[in-house]
Simulated assay, not measured.
Amino acid sequence: MASEVTKITSGSLIAAEKVEGTDVYNPQGDKLGSVDDIMIDKVSGKAIYAIMSFGGFLGIGEKYHPLPWSTLKYDESKGGYIVNLDKKMLENAPTYDINEEFMWTPDYGRRVDKYYNAPSYW
């Protein structure tokens, strides 16, 4: 029953499972990657980061890029998110490898926020 409810979207609400796989574009319309996951604050329930997969071919060389949620704007006409950055900026951004054992820390979060000049969650 609950899975049926999350298939319905209304207004500005969307189920997390529908956000996963959504494409991310820059303002010029170039596809940068897609949302692989969402990091949500346990207390407030607000989305804090979108984890975008970028690069690689068939999963080889693919990296995960945490993007502060505040940097994403939904574009209904594209059916995806727009983020004001280019591929060059992504190449130098904080990332972690798809096969890496990764531990999220407040220091890492602050580094991500600073890189994108976003208000820090931490």
Rank of each mutant, 00 (worst) to 15 (best):
S3N: 13
V5W: 11
V5K: 11
K7A: 12
K7G: 09
T9R: 15
T9S: 15
S10V: 15
G11A: 10
S12V: 05
I14P: 06
A15Y: 04
A15N: 08
A16K: 01
E17Y: 00
K18R: 07
V19R: 08
V19D: 07
T22R: 10
T22S: 06
V24T: 04
V24G: 00
N26A: 00
P27A: 08
G29Y: 00
G29R: 05
G29N: 07
D30W: 07
K31E: 08
L32I: 03
L32V: 03
L32T: 07
S34V: 03
S34E: 15
V35F: 10
D36V: 02
D36S: 13
D36N: 14
D36H: 14
M39T: 09
I40M: 07
I40G: 01
K42G: 13
K42N: 11
S44L: 12
K46N: 14
K46P: 01
A47R: 03
I48S: 14
I48Q: 13
I48A: 13
I48H: 09
Y49D: 00
M52A: 09
S53Y: 10
S53M: 12
F54Y: 13
G55S: 05
G55N: 06
G56Y: 04
G56T: 07
F57D: 12
L58A: 14
L58I: 03
G59Q: 04
G59P: 08
I60W: 09
E62Q: 15
E62K: 15
K63Y: 07
Y64M: 13
Y64D: 08
Y64S: 09
H65I: 15
W69A: 13
W69H: 06
W69Y: 13
T71L: 14
K73M: 05
K73D: 01
D75Y: 06
E76W: 04
G79V: 08
G80A: 05
G80V: 00
G80P: 07
V83P: 03
V83T: 08
N84G: 04
D86G: 15
D86A: 01
K87C: 06
K87A: 15
M89P: 06
M89H: 11
M89I: 11
E91M: 12
A93T: 03
P94S: 01
T95D: 11
Y96R: 05
N99S: 13
E101G: 12
M103T: 14
W104K: 00
T105F: 10
D107F: 07
G109N: 10
G109A: 14
R110W: 00
R110S: 07
R111S: 13
Y115W: 02
Y115R: 02
Y116R: 02
Y116T: 01
N117C: 02
A118W: 10
P119T: 01
P119G: 03
S120V: 00
Y121D: 02
